[in-house]
């Protein structure tokens, strides 16, 4: 069976510096996969590779069997990978609604539109004409997710959704995840909060210093196992 997304023995470099080593990774249709790891483990790098921001020529990375490494960034977006980036990265000179509209640049057909996104996050309809800079952190995160959904992606990447947000707001945002998945969208989420990551994912990968140190079903992995993979052997030895 072909996976929705598949990376085989993937290496990635920033110039001479190697950031990812032989990463084996896959996501299936409708799956929610968490990617955890310490700072600098390569999580964001991996998402950059998936969206084409960090090119990996000659590597094995495919979406529905189509080689992604030969595509440009906007072509990858048009194929159905959309990201809510770390730090939201909203467009400050645009209003909330304009930020959502720009997400539809790739013109993919699907269930998500201005109407359905504003139904998912009702506050965004209320604040439609507000400059995005005047929103609270949680609302900005909703815009970032909504903007990604407007592309009607097959695969939604969520980078550090909970960063800098109050736990109650994080919970509110993650409560929308099942509704997003109901539409058939697969999700890769990068999380610092391991408990949160385990709770909302089907499977989990742990990255450590650019290598996959653990992979498995989220419900079957023990906490000790995860911490060992997260912190690495150096911590165990000491």
């Amino acid at each position: 069976m072909t996976h929705l997304l598949e990376a085989k023995s993937l290496d990635a470099f920033y110039g001479d510096f190697q950031a990812l080593f032989g990463v084996e990774f896959h996501v299936d249709q409708g799956e929610s996969v968490a990617l955890i790891g310490a700072n600098g483990a390569g999580k964001t790098t991996f998402l950059k590779v998936l969206t084409g921001l960090l090119p990996v020529p000659g590597q094995s990375l495919s979406l529905e069997g189509v080689d992604l490494t030969a595509l440009r960034i906007h072509q990858i977006a048009a194929r159905g990978i959309a990201m809510s980036p770390e730090g939201r990265r909203l467009f400050p000179s645009l209003s909330v609604r304009e930020n959502l509209q720009i997400g539809a640049s790739v013109k993919r057909p699907g269930p998500w539109s201005l109407e359905t996104v504003e139904k998912l996050f009702p506050i965004l309809a209320e604040k439609a004409n507000t400059p995005s800079t005047l929103l609270s952190g949680g609302q900005q995160q909703m815009v970032a997710i909504g903007r990604a959904l407007m592309a009607n992606p097959k695969l939604l990447l969520l980078d550090e959704v909970s960063l800098g947000l109050a736990p109650v707001i994080v919970r509110d945002i993650y409560e929308t995840l099942p509704m997003i998945r109901e539409q058939g969208t697969s999700v890769i989420l990068v999380e610092q909060d391991i408990g949160q990551a385990v709770a909302v994912s089907d499977r989990l990968y742990c990255l450590q210093e650019g290598r996959i140190s653990l992979e498995g079903k989220s419900s079957e992995l023990g906490r000790d196992e995860i911490s060992a993979a997260y912190f690495g052997r150096a911590r165990e030895a000491s």
Binding site: A77, R89, P92, E98
Partner: peptide, 22 residues
């Protein structure tokens, strides 16, 4: 204009949402 404003604000984010910046 929407695409241009996005491009001006943040080129990397604009190209990531599928704006054909080039």
């Amino acid at each position: 204009g929407l695409s241009l404003s996005a491009l001006r604000d943040n080129e990397e984010a604009a190209v990531s949402v599928g704006v054909r910046t080039r």
